[in-house]
Computed example of a mutant assay.
Amino acid sequence: MTYVIHGATGAQGGPVLARLIRAGKPAVAAVRHPSAVKDLPAVALDNAAVDSLTAAYQGAEGVFIHLPVAAEADRLQYAHNIAQAIARTKPKRVVISTSGWVVDEPGSPLQNPPESAISTLIREVQQTGVSLAVVAPRLFLENLLNPVVLGPVKSEGILRYPLRADYPVSWSSHLDVAEVVERLLTDSAITGIVGVGQAPGITGQNLAAAFAHYLSKPVSFHGIKPEAFGEMIAPLFGQGAAAGVVAGYQAQAQASANAIAIETSAQTVLGLLPRTLQQWLTEMSA
């Protein structure tokens, strides 16, 4: 019985796979081309094919799922396919990451609608009756390492990001998410949503101050329009994926904060604390 990790060569799945392997757990990278994976156990998986997903999940102890950055229409089809494969194979445990898409704040401009890909995935996996936990980060600190963001921080002392300077966010690292996912995959006592991130949230001004301390130079935060950010990242992710990111930040412009609920946070539910900004910056430079 093994743990199947979606996107295990990427930013979210990679740390999860590494933690499980270090803990001596049988875990495999679920990727489209296993031959391209070096020095890691891997299984072929294609989100666009239910049979491929079913074969990858067969006999699994647990499955970690997060939808890739893609056009929403593609993500929605992947959600349907994944849920069908879960229904066929019934793994003992499933953990889904929302990847920052908000599903636990009804009435907020940030709440994803029921027909969205992430809401559909959670709902349809719930309907299979398997043991399910949902990891709900908000924004990833690793977004700040994107060259279009980090480059100007270093060269100009300006942190440009599509948020207001005073907008509180429960930022977290992929490493924080991996710690929570590992716990939830191996302990099925916890079900439902577990928020991951700083609580209370931290602002753009806080981010700039942390970078200034780390770089030993002045850094200021400049909020930019989501559309401008979309133009910056489109060459990296493609127009379809960038459009989804832009829509997410447009919603944040209408909200007062993007913060997890303390009562369902990993701090409260699991006793796991996220990294501070300074801890994260130090780890990234190690």
Rank of each mutant, 00 (worst) to 15 (best):
A251R: 15
Y57W: 14
D46S: 11
D74N: 11
R275V: 07
H6G: 15
L53A: 06
A228G: 03
M284S: 10
H33C: 00
I21G: 08
G197R: 01
V149Y: 04
S52C: 08
G248F: 02
Q127E: 15
A228Q: 12
G238W: 03
Q205R: 13
T203K: 00
Q58Y: 04
E231L: 10
I260T: 06
L215F: 14
R19S: 05
I260D: 07
P41Q: 07
L150F: 10
E179K: 09
H213P: 05
K217Q: 15
P113K: 05
D51I: 03
S256T: 15
G14L: 08
V148F: 06
A18N: 13
T203S: 15
R32Q: 07
V103Y: 02
G238P: 05
P152Q: 09
A247S: 11
L67P: 02
L17K: 03
A8N: 06
P168A: 12
E182C: 03
L207I: 10
A259H: 00
V180H: 06
A286R: 13
Y249D: 02
P41F: 08
A208W: 01
L236D: 11
I82F: 12
Y161I: 00
S220H: 07
A85N: 02
V246S: 02
E227K: 11
E72L: 02
I260K: 05
L163A: 06
S52W: 04
A228S: 07
L17P: 01
R93T: 09
G192R: 09
P41R: 11
N206G: 08
G62F: 07
Y3L: 12
G195L: 10
A136M: 10
P274L: 07
I260P: 02
P68W: 07
P226M: 01
E142H: 10
V16G: 01
A242C: 03
A71I: 02
G24I: 00
G7Y: 00
A208F: 00
S256I: 12
L17A: 06
E72S: 07
L185R: 08
A87W: 03
H80R: 15
V50M: 09
R22I: 04
I158M: 09
A261D: 07
A189K: 15
F140G: 07
T186E: 15
P152A: 08
V181T: 14
L20T: 09
A241D: 03
Q267W: 09
I158A: 00
V95Y: 13
I82Q: 01
A30N: 02
A133Q: 11
A23T: 11
Y167V: 05
N47P: 11
D39W: 08
G244K: 00
K154R: 14
A234E: 14
P235R: 07
A85W: 03
I202E: 02
P91G: 04
I262M: 13
D46A: 12
I193T: 15
V194W: 04
I202W: 02
S108T: 13
A30K: 10
P226Y: 00
L236K: 10
A286T: 09
S155K: 14
N206M: 10
L121D: 06
R160Y: 06
A210M: 12
Y214G: 08
R88K: 15
L139Y: 12
T191H: 05
